[in-house]
Design a protein around this nucleic acid. Sequence first.
DNA 1: GTCACTTTTGACGGAGAGCTTCACGTGCGG
DNA 2: CCGCACGTGAAGCTCTCCGTCAAAAGTGAC
Lengths: 139, 139
Amino acid sequence: MKLSVKSDYAARAVIGLAKHYPTGAALKVEDLAAESSTPANYLVQILIELKSRHIVKSIRGKEGGYLLARPPAEISLGDVLRCVHGRVFDPPALHDAHCPAELRAAWKKLQTALDETADGITFQKLLDEGADKAKMYYI
Amino acid sequence: MKLSVKSDYAARAVIGLAKHYPTGAALKVEDLAAESSTPANYLVQILIELKSRHIVKSIRGKEGGYLLARPPAEISLGDVLRCVHGRVFDPPALHDAHCPAELRAAWKKLQTALDETADGITFQKLLDEGADKAKMYYI
DNA sequence: GTCACTTTTGACGGAGAGCTTCACGTGCGG
DNA sequence: CCGCACGTGAAGCTCTCCGTCAAAAGTGAC
């Protein structure tokens, strides 16, 4: 079960924006694409989806670009994942009447486990982990 | 992120075999397909994969068919899932050097959360749940 | 040995999703 | 008015998933 690169790109973009969040300045798509090494033209579409879910916001015209709509502590990996795809771990069983109830319950269990874990990971935590890792190099 | 129907079919097939496990008799592909309402021709391929991972075993010739290779308590949903797809929740980030380390750690966390949950669900538990549900109708 | 019955294996093809790029429209500032 | 950057839609391409089919090979009954 492969996870699409789209979600990966989205997460990288949000991380990139989160790093620039304290500055308050907008980040151009091309700069963000270069920083997170993602195809710029594809990243645009992802950013639009992220915008529609109020995870990021945009400023047009010169000096325009993207920035986070909320502080990184209030954005979870689950939010980004659910934005890019629909529901995380969506089993076809839920739409199929032939699926036995006990199996449906099992899928649900997996789904909630994944959801809760993803919701527990905020981008503030990811930033802190990255900072900790950078600091460890000096020890 | 949709889960493929293949995994659903596989799980249903194992449940069907688990129900017949006490009898010790082999179950024909067509019967199993009818019972779990899955396309027989497709189910064959899934069963072969399940066999290669020693989750089920087969008997050829007349009176042949499939049966579980182990008791239902020793088969987890994670086993079936990993058999049908490769790794569960495989993020492309692991193969991409451009992915930041903190994000890779986050994907790993989701992956292990899903793995542990799936490994905790044995088919014996699913059978018991189904039996409990059936019993509740008589109360 | 032969036959009926089963699994086994391989290949095929339509359908759909994912990835990427391109071209043009829209709004903002100078 | 003009340039810059976002916004949007469409197109191509590849690849996997889903399902079907046909032929091969093994097994027990007679």
